[in-house]
């Protein structure tokens, strides 16, 4: 084998090992899992019968792990709620369901990016540490109104009394 071939094969193998080790540590030690991992099912025709999604929005969490639960219902072609305020530094469990077809749920400039499939509750656990206005967009083509399907998360300083 040529000397150069040995070098580039070693570098390639070494890089692959480095990537896999980082991914392994990140997944097992830091607990980074794919978005919407875990399967919780819900009948898409009876989404509103579920207490969480009857009036979706931001609610204080009973769980010690989170400060708030944020519920969203996606349907052609809007998200409910259309705007929500979250206090800075909150630990939030985001749960999204669809009542009709497959939608996307991407919060721009964050790692939140989920598919929202009818029949599944898509869940993402996150912290909102930076004050700002975050656009939510649908990134799964869902019909003629797809491009207008948006919502907004406002991360604000202080309390969350404005949330309903």
């Amino acid at each position: 084998m040529h000397k150069f071939e040995k070098i580039w094969m070693s570098v390639g193998t070494g890089s692959l090992i480095i990537f896999l080790v980082i991914l392994g540590v990140s997944a097992v030690h830091a607990g980074h899992t794919p978005a919407a991992s875990g399967i919780e099912t819900i009948n898409p025709e009876y989404v509103r019968d579920d207490d969480r999604f009857a009036e979706p929005g931001l609610y204080e969490s009973d769980d010690d792990e989170f400060d708030y639960n944020l519920y969203f219902v996606a349907s052609a072609f809007n998200y409910e709620p259309s705007e929500v305020e979250i206090p800075q530094g909150s630990r939030v469990k985001v749960q999204v369901v669809s009542t009709d077809v497959v939608h996307g749920f991407q919060v721009v400039n964050t790692n939140i990016n989920m598919m929202v499939e009818p029949g599944l509750v898509s869940t993402y656990r996150t912290n909102f540490d930076n004050v700002g206005e975050y656009l939510i967009v649908c990134n799964e083509y869902c019909g003629v109104g797809h491009t207008d399907m948006t919502s907004t998360i406002k991360v604000v300083e202080g309390g969350a009394e404005a949330n309903e």
Binding site: H2, F4, G12, S15, F19
Partner: peptide
């Protein structure tokens, strides 16, 4: 013949592409 091949150009290109992949991967991470 194989060991005497002049692979300097190939080597530079392979390393350049490898470096690009490496930097892109870490950029995304």
């Amino acid at each position: 013949d194989h060991s005497k091949l002049d692979l300097r150009g190939t080597f530079m290109m392979v390393m350049f592409l490898g470096g690009l992949i490496f930097v892109s991967w870490f950029g995304a991470f």
